[in-house]
């Protein structure tokens, strides 16, 4: 009797998991299916399967969404944000993990509070400053802003990874006469490199997906990121659903591939920022 009941519970569990998995993927499958159909076929029945593999939608989406320029801008934005965050957060994380300055608790509290400051509190004067400095539309400068916004989380993550460096290794290097920069470069960075990858994936994802800052600061056609280009395409092109869905596949596809390849680091990053032991 009891084994029977347990069996039923297990089956119910699997059914639930499958149902939630289907909910997560269903809209994305619809996108994929409809990206191969022409406009009238989508309108007739968005749930039907395509009759063939027609890549015309993708060709049109690529040119109307200005994806070539968009991907280049997204790369510049993401690369700048990741580079700035990696350099600054690893240096700060190293000092904070080793409690090397007397005011380290103050710095920690500063980062904790600034992590929860809403973008709306600093968006408007920052926009004004950017327009005065003629930086509106400057993709790299916006990348630096995104880096600054993600800095607190990155510092905390890097600090946890630096805490894992054994004290003895560091002391041995100092005894051998290494200075701080040699110590960082040749002894500590190799140990914390998984942390760097985790921070890079999380911040890279944030920068690539950012909406509020980028849509406000990057308004010229030439400075649009891939997602902003797609957004403007939605305004002018939304009657042809097949092309819209092809555009979505162009945007979503690479991200899913990268996510599946690096999923361990993504999960690490999400979890280490949020689970309290």
């Amino acid at each position: 009797m009891r084994g029977h009941a347990r069996h039923i519970t297990a089956v119910c569990g699997h059914v639930l998991l499958l149902a939630f998995g289907a909910t997560a993927l269903f809209p994305l499958l619809l996108v994929l299916v409809n990206s191969f159909k022409d406009s009238s076929a989508v309108t007739a029945n968005p749930l039907s399967l395509p009759t063939g593999l027609n890549f015309e939608n993708f060709r049109q989406a690529w040119s109307y969404g200005h994806f070539q320029r968009g991907f280049i801008n997204s790369f510049i934005l993401t690369f700048t944000a990741v580079l700035v965050v990696l350099v600054c957060s690893s240096l700060a994380g190293y000092v904070l993990a080793g409690k090397k300055i007397r005011i380290w608790p103050a710095v920690m509290i500063y980062f904790m509070v600034s992590m929860t400051v809403p973008i709306q509190l600093f968006l408007f004067p920052l926009y004004f400053g950017f327009s005065r400095l003629h930086l509106l539309g400057n993709v790299a400068a916006v990348g630096v802003v995104i880096a600054a916004i993600n800095m607190p989380l990155a510092v905390f993550l890097m600090r946890t990874f630096f805490l894992k460096v054994p004290k003895e290794v560091e002391e041995a290097a100092l005894v051998d006469g290494a200075n701080t920069f040699q110590l960082l470069r040749s002894v500590i960075l190799p140990v914390v490199s998984p942390g760097l990858v985790t921070v890079a994936t999380i911040v890279g994802l944030m920068a690539w997906n950012e909406f509020l800052i980028t849509s406000t600061f990057l308004q010229g056609d030439s400075s649009m990121t891939a997602t902003l280009g797609y957004l403007s395409m939605n305004g002018t092109f939304s009657t042809n659903q097949g092309v819209m869905m092809a555009g979505a596949v162009i945007l979503v596809g690479p991200i899913i591939v990268i996510f599946v390849m690096l999923q361990r680091y993504f999960v690490d990053g999400f979890v280490s920022g949020s689970v309290k032991g």
């Binding site: 994305l28 909406f211 997602t227 797609y230 899913i256 993504f266």
Partner: peptide
């Protein structure tokens, strides 16, 4: 489960 979470709000 994480796929929708890693996609951009715009998409």
């Amino acid at each position: 489960f994480l796929v929708p979470y890693v996609l951009a709000p715009i998409t």
